[in-house]
Computed example of a mutant assay.
Amino acid sequence: MSGNVLEGKLVRDRIPEIIRDNGEEPVTYIADREEYRQRLEAKLLEEVDEFLEADDEARKGEAADVLEVLLALVAEIGVDPDQLEQIRCAKAHERGGFADRVVWTGNR
């Protein structure tokens, strides 16, 4: 996100409805595409930070939040979840995954 600080924060679509159900009136607006992408990028960093700070049990929900934001971000660049999975699988086939816990420390 650029140096400007935007007021408010991107929230899930049903949050205004939930606020109304609690007897309050939310103040919202719909971001344009440029602002939406900026806010998604900021939200991804926020969710990753929350994931990293959470204990193992809470990380399950935080991981779902990270994935939700990531899927929204890739949709903005024209990639649907199935395409993303195909790209992930191809990279895993070509270069492997991370299951073997390999740490590279350089070359001799």
Rank of each mutant, 00 (worst) to 15 (best):
L52Y: 05
L70Y: 04
G106W: 10
A64M: 12
E85Y: 13
V66A: 08
E85S: 12
L52P: 03
T105H: 15
E47G: 02
R12Q: 02
R101H: 13
R33Q: 12
L73K: 08
D13S: 05
Q38T: 11
M1Y: 11
I19C: 01
G97Y: 10
L45G: 08
A64N: 14
V11A: 01
R108N: 15
A42G: 10
N4E: 14
A99G: 12
E53V: 02
G106P: 02
L52N: 09
F98H: 07
L6A: 13
I15D: 01
R33D: 14
E94P: 02
V48A: 03
I19G: 03
R12V: 00
S2R: 13
F51E: 00
L44W: 01
A31D: 12
S2D: 12
F98K: 06
T28E: 13
D55N: 03
R101D: 13
G23H: 05
T105C: 11
E50G: 07
E7N: 04
I77R: 13
L84Y: 03
G23N: 08
G96K: 05
L67S: 02
E62V: 13
V66T: 11
D82G: 05
P81N: 01
D55H: 01
E53H: 10
E34Y: 11
G61P: 12
R33K: 15
V69T: 04
E94Y: 03
Q86F: 07
Q38Y: 09
E85T: 08
V66Y: 11
M1V: 11
L70H: 01
V102A: 12
D82T: 13
I18L: 06
K43C: 00
I30A: 13
K43H: 01
D56Y: 14
K91T: 03
A58P: 05
A99E: 13
N4M: 12
E24A: 15
L67I: 07
A58Q: 15
E24Q: 15
L45W: 05
L70Q: 03
R37E: 14
G97L: 11
A90Y: 07
G61E: 07
R39P: 07
G8Y: 04
V11R: 00
L84S: 00
G78A: 08
R12T: 01
G23R: 11
L40H: 02
T105I: 15
C89T: 09
G8W: 06
R14V: 09
